[in-house]
Each structure stands twice: as C-alpha cells, then as structure tokens.
Amino acid sequence: MAENLLTATGLEVVYGGRRGVKVLHGVDIAIRRGETVGIVGESGSGKTTLGRALLRLVDVSAGSIHFDGRDITHLPEAEMRPLRRRIQMIFQDPMASLNPRHTIRRILVEPLLLHGLAKNAAEAEARVAKILERVTLPAACLDRNPHELSGGQRQRIGIARAALLEPDFVLADEIVSGLDVSTQAQVLKLLKGLSADLGLAMAFISHDLSVIRAVCDRVYVLRFGKVEEEGTCAEVFANPKSDYTRILLDAIPLPEINPGWLDPKTGIEDAA
C-alpha cells in the first residue's frame, strides 16, 4: 500500500470569527500517493470547505494537515509557496477561474515560467503543445480567449493547467457539474487517464455519487461537516454501512424502469 501524501486529522473550520458557524466538526482524511479519493455530500455538508482547508485556502481552527510528511497546518504563506506548485486545483467554473482577458497561450505558459519549470518561453511553449495534445485540444486554441471555447474545452484547459505543473496532488471541486453528459464522460475519462499517467493523488469533490463511482478509488461521505462513512468505492457502493449513504444512493434515479422507486419507503428519507 502506498504511503499517505496528504493527511488531515481532527480538522475543524469556523466561518465568521469567534462566534462563527462551525462547518467542519473534526474531519479525518488521508490521501495516498497515486490514489483518487472522492469527497461527496449534499449542499452544506462541508465538502468544499474541506477541500479548501486541505489546500490551506481557509484557516483551520483545530486539527492538523500534513503534506508529504510535513506539518503544514500553520505554515506561513512564504513557506507554503514552494509547495503550491505541487498542490494544484481544478475549479468548478473555468469561466471564472481562467482570466477572460488572457489568451489560452498566456494562461498555460505563464505558470511554467513563474514556477521555473521552463527556462524560457520556447521551452514552455513546447510543453504546452504537448499537454494540449494530451487533453485533445487543437493548437489553434492557444490564440483564443476562454470565452471562445466550449464548456468542455475550457474544463480541459483547467485540467491541462493543473497537470502542466507536475503536481503531486490535485483538488478537483465539482469540475463536471455544469457539463452535458457526453462532455462529462470525455472530461472524466481524460482526468482518470491523466492521473494514472502522472501518478497523481487527487481529491475529487462532487455531489454526484455516480460520477464519484466512475473515477475514484475510495470515497468519503460527508454530512453536516462530519465524515459519515469512508471506504473503498467497491465496498461503500455495494454495501453501504451508513443509513445516510444508503438514502443518498437510493435517491439517485437510474435510467431504467423501476416501478415503486418514487413511492415512500417507511419514512427513512424524512430523516435525511
């Protein structure tokens, strides 16, 4: 079994100062090298906050975060910076995360130069060309602005930008929730292939258990800021231990006729 790359223990996050609202109530999570971990939950479950806390994008009020054996819980930003390249993020809405005034070329080349992964523009361009091919986008994209691409293409740029920096860990937060099914399958397939090629560890946040099933090795089910259930996808999906997980699974409509699916089942859903 591979060692843990990113672990968090007893993580708590409070929003809004001293009298604030606690949104994470002691979460333990561990992500191993090369593994894709799903974080699933309904709105307000704390899944996005957990992701942000792991990346040190929000402050934690209790608990600790270790990355590659090092305690980063309270690491000053200056000391975090060298780690930032190794920890990348793919966002939900690429329209909001890609600078609309920059060309795709600039969006992809600049981080390489900034992090010193390419000595000069020519070298950076060469690497960009390679990754574009990997995410199956034509080179002509480079001279476009984000708004000139389709949603699926933009999301592939988001993936390319994260992968270019050769990170160890990638956080993907609801990255397919705005996409059509046919585009979604394309993005998921690409992401899965890429993370295998690069040996990436990934946290994949989604509200959609079916999507989690398609790309993740293990899954954490979050509810009210706590881990409700955790395990390999094979275990959790075939044999959920928590009632809540079972209710979530049962609430997903499958594309096959299932008479009685809509009928109430002895009130357990009201508890959800």
């Binding site: 099914v181 046919s182 585009t183 979604q184 399958a185 394309q186 998921l188 397939k189 899965k192 959609d208 258990l209 079916s210 999507v211 989690i212 099933r213 398609a214 790309v215 996808c233 094979a234 999906f237 699974l249 997903i252 499958l254 594309p255």
Partner: peptide, 20 residues
C-alpha cells in the same frame, strides 16, 4: 444508445467514461 452509455452509474464502476 451512446447517451445511455455516457452516463455514470453508481451501480456500475465502468460506466460514465465512454464519451459519445
């Protein structure tokens, strides 16, 4: 047919990765 195959399903680990 392709749309049906493209949709991920929690009861099938290999579904959802087949673009149209």
């Amino acid at each position: 047919k392709a749309l049906m195959a493209a949709g991920p399903r929690y009861d099938r680990p290999d579904a959802g990765l087949e673009p149209v």
